[in-house]
């Protein structure tokens, strides 16, 4: 009897997926679907939060008041995006505290791109232009992802994200049109961020264990390699416009596939950064752990005060 009911629930679920009907928090869903979502959404949220660090690194050194305000509001947006995403994941029954604990213990991952350092002001331009460009490419399809709260969070994220890439491109354009030292700064930043950005789309399809199921459940809508190809095709002309040289000797237009051929990502570096051996993995994580631990007494105090106040109001 029980199995029959189970099966029919699963059928209802599969039917919704097939008909592009969103799955909502209280709907029945396969346990694996729930787990995949918690993993993906929390990883996405963690990426926003850890991603605040490399850019935040330049807020106090931004070269003009206008740039300072723009950068601060951009990094603040990332905090907002992290918050929307944690909220979406919480509808699946995992608390934010649990997710944060998983991040801090190293169990949960975040985007490896943020394990690279920001060395010059041009890195802020490169991150906005390249990294946010890649993020948008990954994120826009998620507006149509099958889980309702995630899709709705992504609508908000994408709407706000649109200025991020533009401000990055504007920084790059200003530098590329500026003094030779600025142009050089831009090229060096481009050289440093190009390959790590290509890694953002994840391992090759043939080595991505989760892709197939995620595609079937419409959590993901394009494969890693598809998105990576699209990104290269979109960015190369933009780099040419800026007068920057793509640091890839294998880059070549391929008429038959109507896209660029490009060199292979250094997968050894990729897997090492994922495993925690990137240049900033330890710094990033310890900065997050420190903020959380040093904030513990603040969170406790606010809660204690709220309880005292509630008690007083109950007595009055």
């Amino acid at each position: 009897m029980e199995t029959i009911i189970e099966k029919s629930l699963e059928e209802v679920f599969e039917e919704k997926i097939a008909n592009d009907i969103r799955i909502e928090p209280k709907d029945w869903m396969p346990e694996q679907y729930r787990k995949t979502l918690v993993r993906q959404i929390s990883q996405h949220a963690h990426s926003e939060i850890v991603g605040m660090l490399p850019e935040g690194n330049w807020i106090t050194r931004a070269p003009s008041l206008k740039r300072k305000a723009i950068l601060l509001s951009k990094v603040q947006d990332e905090a907002g995006h992290g918050l929307y995403l944690y909220s979406a994941a919480e509808t699946l029954g995992t608390t934010r505290d649990q997710m944060i604990a998983d991040l801090h213990s190293g169990k949960a991952k975040y985007s490896s791109i943020f394990n690279y350092p920001t060395l010059s002001w041009a890195d802020i331009g490169a991150i906005g232009w390249l990294v946010d460009g890649a993020a948008i490419m990954n994120q826009v399809p998620l507006i149509r992802t099958s889980y309702g709260p995630y899709a709705r969070a992504m609508v908000r994220v994408c709407k706000e994200e649109s200025f991020h890439q533009r401000q990055g491109f504007e920084i790059m354009m200003t530098l590329c049109n500026g003094a030779p030292a600025q142009k050089q700064m831009a090229q060096e930043a481009f050289n440093r961020w190009w390959w790590p950005t290509l890694m953002m789309f994840g391992p090759k399809d043939s080595e991505s264990p989760n892709t197939e199921q995620s595609m079937r459940w419409k959590i993901k809508r394009f494969t890693n390699d598809e998105l990576r190809q699209r990104f290269v095709d979109m960015m190369v002309p933009q780099a040419e416009f800026l007068g920057l040289t793509v640091p890839d000797k294998d880059l070549k237009w391929n008429e038959t596939k109507n896209g660029y051929d490009f060199g292979d990502v250094d997968w050894e570096e990729f897997w090492n950064v994922v495993k925690g051996n990137g240049p900033c993995n330890k710094d990033r994580l310890s900065a997050r752990v420190k903020a959380h631990e040093e904030g513990a007494w603040v969170r406790e105090a606010a809660l204690a005060h709220a309880q005292k106040r509630a008690q007083r109001e109950a007595q009055a």
């Binding site: 939060i49 660090l53 807020i59 601060l72 603040q76 918050l83 903020a291 040093e294 603040v298």
Partner: peptide, 20 residues
């Protein structure tokens, strides 16, 4: 603005950035 990314909780990180 030095607090940005290091606040005691995400919600207050946003609040301090707004004031900044």
């Amino acid at each position: 603005s030095e607090w940005c990314g290091h606040g005691p909780i995400l919600e207050q990180d946003l609040a301090m950035a707004n004031i900044a």
